[in-house]
Design a protein around this nucleic acid. Sequence first.
RNA 1: CGGGGUGUAGCGCAGAGGGCAGCGCGCCGCGUUUGGGACGCGGAGGUCGACGGUUCAAGUCCGUCCACCCCGACCA
Length: 591
Amino acid sequence: MRMSKLFSQTLREAPADAEIPSHKLLVRAGYIHQLAAGIFTAMPLAHRSLTKIEDIMREEINAIGGQEMSMPVIHPAEIWKRTGRWSKVGPEMGRFKDRNGRDMALAMTHEEAVVDIIKDEIQSYRQLPVLIYHIQTKWRDDPRPRAGLIRVREFTMKDSYSLDRDWDGLDRQYQDHYQAYFNIFNRCKLPVIAVESDVGMMGGNMAHEFMYLTPVGEDTLLLCEECGYKANRQIAEFQKQKPPQEKERTLEKVETPDAKTIQDLTELLEIPDRKTSKVVFMMATHLREEEEVNQLVFAIVRGDMELNETKLANAIKAKSLRPAEAEDIQAVGAVPGYASPIGLDDVLVVVDDLIPESPNMVAGANEEEYHYLNVNYGRDYEADLVADIAAAQDGDLCPHCGSPLKEVRGIEVGNIFKLGTWYSEAVGATFQDNDGQEKPVVMGSYGIGSGRLLASIVEEYNDEYGLILPISVAPYQVHLVSLGKSSGGGEVQAAAEELYQSLNAQGVEVLFDDRDESPGVKFNDADLIGVPIRLTVGARSLEKGSIEMKLRDEKERELIPEGEVLERVQKTIQKLSKEIEDRIVPVHLEE
RNA sequence: CGGGGUGUAGCGCAGAGGGCAGCGCGCCGCGUUUGGGACGCGGAGGUCGACGGUUCAAGUCCGUCCACCCCGACCA
């Protein structure tokens, strides 16, 4: 490709609305162009990189038996109504009506489309197991797209779906994906870890997320360096240390002016925050026979802990949770800042499982300026539900080995779910097993977003000058810079042109800077675009019968005799490719 | 949805107090220059986010709306 013809331009300055390196650099280097919030065009450079990433995904999924296909982006509402997700999923689903007034949906994932197919196509256990996948556009109307390609609304995802006759089969396909996913990320040179995760709107009973660890990530993870426990904060467990036993003391009401927060309270009463209980009001939405029902939830955790909303939502099986408004709270007779579970009706009280173990706590009195001392669970109040609803934090103890957990941030670049039979049962996607029984197909679903993966790679590999792409995902293998100009003697240009032709003839992917630009501009653009191998043809090196070669991630330049250039380029490509292939190692999924 | 911010040329920005819409980069033409974002001369490019109001006169003042960005909520 000649840069004089390349449909994109580099920018000297990044757009003001880009904040993180991958966003700034992808825009500056001319890879992407924004159309609207969370909606981007992949310009030719990005398209080539994305195609390479997608080809890697194809190869790895094909290798575990995947069959590529293509499912529609537009779905009739009908299939989403059958699984209940038409009403279960909120405004993040794109909906519209066709000309006849029928409800339609923009696909945000394809479980519904898959079960609709298998309902018709799969009748016998002889047709199983199957692994199907496609690489397709998804639309998720995220409330807050951000960070360039990291968090978008329209995106391309490789999503595969495993179909099995039983859970053992699902286990095998799940493990195959676990390995294939590590292979994919390794081939993209992106370091990731797999963590246990919440199943979220996908349903199912086991899930892992593949996380690229970076401070710009938006997920919080807890890791144990001792035993290897890794989990998304949404579900992370930890060992709660029981406070020492104490004799129950008498309930006592005390005046606590202006003590609306845990901190005020601990200072006023001179007690540690673990002696207090914190009430968090949430408004939960439940789905009862297609109707949304709101309910105020009173969640109580110890004052030194935070509520984990995902755990709470899972514990009470709520569709969604949001912080309650002041009116909601007052409506049930509670007093924000002085709230208490004592003497309240009409609310769902959920307490963290450490609360019943904690004697003589301080809690609100449901009266301005008053708290109770020596509140004891069981004696003074009872909850509707006792569950683990506290969020793990940095330094909490590992649920497995008791070592301190470390809190880190990450970007979710892939996920795998054991869906089980939830979807197939919902639509009657069954097959006849060899025992003659009709059974629901056992499913798994597995996704990787290609744009987010590219952005993560850029986030990991860049410097102040631009991208430094691994050869497996770079849009080109070689960036050939000609320092000659059309107006000059033409010797340099002719040599560069000849080299360009020879490299092309050998199948090397070359980006050829044939523009009438000054050397500085060309070198800067080359650094910005981030192709791994740079060849420079200039009068200086040509005099010595040589071409200069430089790798993007190294400082040294090397002069290569003209006659050896083709061979050296091929060897270098092989070397760089092998370094990446060597990253592929077997991994183990512990269950 | 709550809080904060920004909308002026492709990109980055300036335009107190109303009075001819500007600068740098980029773009076009001519010439010089050529190993790390060169220089001269000449040019093109704008519903100043939109709508409404105040005024002789609005980029600037007032109102409403929209878009985009950041934090939170939410989310694979």
